[in-house]
Design a protein around this nucleic acid. Structure first.
Lengths: 232, 232
DNA sequence: AATATTAAGTGTATTATTTACATTTATAAA
DNA sequence: TTTATAAATGTAAATAATACACTTAATATT
């Protein structure tokens, strides 16, 4: 019998960080929140917001902390994506990075805080050059988001409480990167029966105005318990 | 402007490990390879095979190393699943664990090596009690495998080079945990046109014998380049 | 040599889902 | 009052998924 666990004492310890891919939606396109490095190395380049894992902190805790630091938001939708371990990925010192993507409602975030961190929202199609392996992280997160939004109703995390059918459709179109027929879209969404149609209309987009909807989270969760699955 | 990156020097370093969920298929059910702990804590309980991340090693390197140590196999299909960071997940010392699942052909592995590690194959339905958070890791890996096998032709990694249509079907039935009609299954697989039907028959399962097939990896990859996607 | 046994191999009809597509309507602005 | 604009809505056609049963090839038995 060979002992398969080496002595814990002899083992190398490493820095462990989390990096957050923060997604927002501005009614027209999906954006990510990046911060500008004002120190070397890679000063002037843009990067994801990150932070080191602290003693007694889970990676999820750390991601929440990092997120709150930059946006002021708590209780944000977060999902772990992938862990990057290339020994040379960070030129300063070897760091393992665990990535999370966050879905926030752009209008909710604290602009003062993000200004303090020289943060800026970028359209996914116009991201600037990123440090290290951050572009890869972003790509991976987008793929995961694409998959997840199509099988779970997490898209609503990116929209205001009340939204129009067109906003919702536009959101899915941008995330999935495909055009959708509006009648077919409405049909599919309505069939799933997870939206509450309000009396209220949004008058900003047209003369006729368009009805506002809300996501019925309780109803969805009850249906999910009964085996229903969201599928777009 | 607030400096968002703390000094690297001040930061806590942690042990980082990989744990491998090793899947195999024995023509009847999906199994995982577990090792029995012969030391405290949790002596006598079963666990995943794991190992610490070494200097200059990526997590994928580490997973490959761990896998070769236990099975003698190289170039095995490996996919990172999730990273576990609860500060108390390992009672001996705080350890971050990155999990990978591996798909191997059971008959290819080195039994001598696995015997040396007190390893044993368990049916997924009859896994023994596992240490720490290893059961959670297994569950997560199964879910990922379920998803991945249905959108990429990785199931073949679990089968011998030559296999019958029924073996392939049985494999999918066990992974996806649902019965499939054999005519519909064959139709779907044949439509995708990624199998080579051999002249050869396997005579072990019936008097009539059943034709053997091979996965045409090159053809699949060319088709994938052209936008084709495997979907079961 | 004939017969029995067993899993392999195969096709069609039905149902459900997805896609394509155009007109009317409510409201504000002119 | 008219005009302009996006919102709202339904149906037919095409495609995909499902349900379902008999014939065949080879071995084993008599």
């Amino acid at each position: 019998m060979v002992s398969f666990v080496s002595n814990y004492q002899d083992q190398t310890q490493l820095l462990v960080a989390v990096d957050c891919i923060i997604f927002g939606f501005d009614n027209d396109e999906v954006k990510i929140l990046l911060i500008k490095r004002n120190f070397e190395p890679e000063k002037g380049k843009w990067s994801l917001m990150g932070g080191f894992l602290q003693p007694n902190e889970t990676a999820t805790n750390a991601a929440n902390r990092v997120l709150e630091t930059l946006t002021g938001l708590q209780d944000v939708y977060l999902e772990q994506v992938h862990t990057y371990t290339d020994p040379n990925r960070d030129p300063v010192e070897r760091t393992v990075s665990i990535t999370y993507y966050a879905l926030i409602k752009i209008e909710d975030h604290n602009e003062e805080l993000s200004k303090q961190h020289s943060a800026h929202w970028f359209s996914l199609k116009e991201t600037p050059e990123l440090i290290f392996d951050h572009q890869q992280m972003v790509n991976h997160a987008i793929n995961r988001l694409r998959y997840k939004t199509s099988v779970q109703p997490i898209g609503f995390e990116l929209l205001p409480e009340k939204f129009t059918m067109r906003q919702l459709q536009k959101l899915y179109e941008t995330i999935l990167n495909e055009e959708i027929d509006k009648r077919n879209f409405a049909k599919k969404i309505n069939q799933m029966d997870v939206l509450i149609k309000l009396e209220e209309k949004d008058m900003s987009s047209s003369k006729k105005g368009s009805f506002l909807f809300q996501f019925d989270k309780d109803k969805y969760e009850n249906m999910a318990k009964e085996g229903f699955s969201f599928k777009l």
